[in-house]
Design a protein around this nucleic acid. Sequence first.
RNA 1: GCGCCAGUAGCUCAGUUGGAUUAGAGCAACGGACUUCUAAUCCGUAGGUCGCAGGUUCGAAUCCUGCCUGGCGUACCA
Length: 564
Amino acid sequence: MVKDYLNSAIAKVLGSYEAVPDDFVVELEIPNNPEHGDWSTNAALKLARYLRKAPREIAEEMVARLSDVFSPELITSADVAGAGFINFRVANAYWWQLLGRILELESRYGRGSSGDGKKALVEYVSANPTGPLTVGHGRNAVLGDTIANVLDWSGYDVTREYYFNDAGRQMRVLGESVRSQYLSILNPSRETKTVEGGSGDVVVPEDFPEDGYLGEYIIDIARSIASEHGDTKKAEDAEGFFKDAAEKVIFADIEATLGRIGIRQDEYFNERTLYDTGKIWNVVDGLRKEGLVYDSEGAVWFKTTEFGKEKDTVLVKSSGEPTYRLPDIAYHVDKVERSYDRIVDIFGADHIATVPDVLKGVELLGYDVSGIDVVIYQFVTLVRSGKPVKMSTRKATYETLDDLIDEVGADVVRFFFLMRSANTHLEFDLDLAREASDKNPVFYLQYAHARICSILRKADEVGAGSTVAEPDLGQLVHASEINLIKSLAQFPAVVEDASSSLEPHRIATYLRELAVAFTDFYGNCRIIGEEDGIASARLALARAARIGLANGLSVLGISAPDRM
RNA sequence: GCGCCAGUAGCUCAGUUGGAUUAGAGCAACGGACUUCUAAUCCGUAGGUCGCAGGUUCGAAUCCUGCCUGGCGUACCA
């Protein structure tokens, strides 16, 4: 990499200054104004205070010394500019060489090594099996899956995990809801009542639980139980047979939905195992030893006021049932004990309040939490016909993720969730997403890819560049050609940035720039019809551009079609 | 009240972790370009007191403080 080359050259020059602190870091960046060169450093500006000299003066000196060190085949110029920046220009030969490397690496181009030999765990989706996945779950799922991809691309050995709870109140109500509907299917003349649903009143059986699930899927499940088992399940428990039956169906649906957007997880972690193994009680005992847990009013409390909370937090209710925080802490202890170098949680903004409790709890038990990163994403606002749609699983007013995939397709769903940073609200206008899909940015990227494939096919047909055995990349001197290579050159760093910051939207943003660079090349530099020397070189560049787009889309989990 | 997140073009958002007289894309608007390798495209025009006010320094959309607005949270719900 030129960056490394520049870095060590500058470091060497700085070594001759005594006043430069040992921990001084040379910053190199790609200027956003291309007139300022290919790379730029602000080192002279930063050093001014240590050397007690004007930045420009320092820069001039540095440039003079650097010119002795630089190989002219790599760096063609180093100039002082502005307040004391040093701008470097890289020789075309470097870009040609890089192009050759992209073509060699092919589907591996962009993969990094920062995570080599390290293990990462990404936990995402983690929806309890009480109903179909909502659009909100979709953002979680796509974000988590793509972060896992990104970590994989930077070398980590990644495990994708789904944490769920199939016990507790929610699931009990689910079983009761199904049982109630089942009994009414067997006996339609049972008493009914009317309750308020998200989109108007709903008629349910008289014995339907107060907070019961009103979604149509509950009746579907009840119906299939009725048709499979007749009335033989009349006497079964809501919490036993009915809950289990519902869970099975719902989980299968969740997996199927995730599969539609290319998501398959490695591990399913059942919260119940934390009870079975007694790990939750280890947490209580451990914290109690630290004097941070006490009993009051029949409940077990965590002294969260010790670290800045307004109130202490209940870990175990007076009913003896733990709140979700307790298993959450135990779960994270379990993750840390499984010795991952990096543990990533994907949480919705509504979970933000629990994060400090959980991390603090784990830390107070003597574990290192520095490897845990929590990615918080803000909520998705669904907009239909210009109006926000309230989403509630229980009231069945959600738009399901399945519906969304039906409407706009898996690629658009993934891209929409990825094109923005996680911590901004996402307004998802369904009408727009559906009807305006032709101007959706994802198509722009895919179109560029398909277009390249089309050119490659056509070139093959007419034999463009076929008389040249080994393309002479040195023929690529047009500004559009060099710019395209420069754009491609950024890809590995973009992946690395996305990996270290856990911000996959950077890749989406980058791909747009890459596609623009290709389209500019496409508009300015013809391939077919040119003489074979130039045609073969441009074909090589087109292939490299295809690799960049295909690899980038692959990280995002979006298809790269050969034709559109 | 307190905590977290956000506030950048009419709309939706980027902004390389503090850099460069001129803050960028897309959509929408306006004006152009299809005997050409895919027009699902391209070129051009217009559009801004970066929520407001201070502060920090060579330099601020970016960091600090205070305010304003919106979202989320602040349960013996998850």
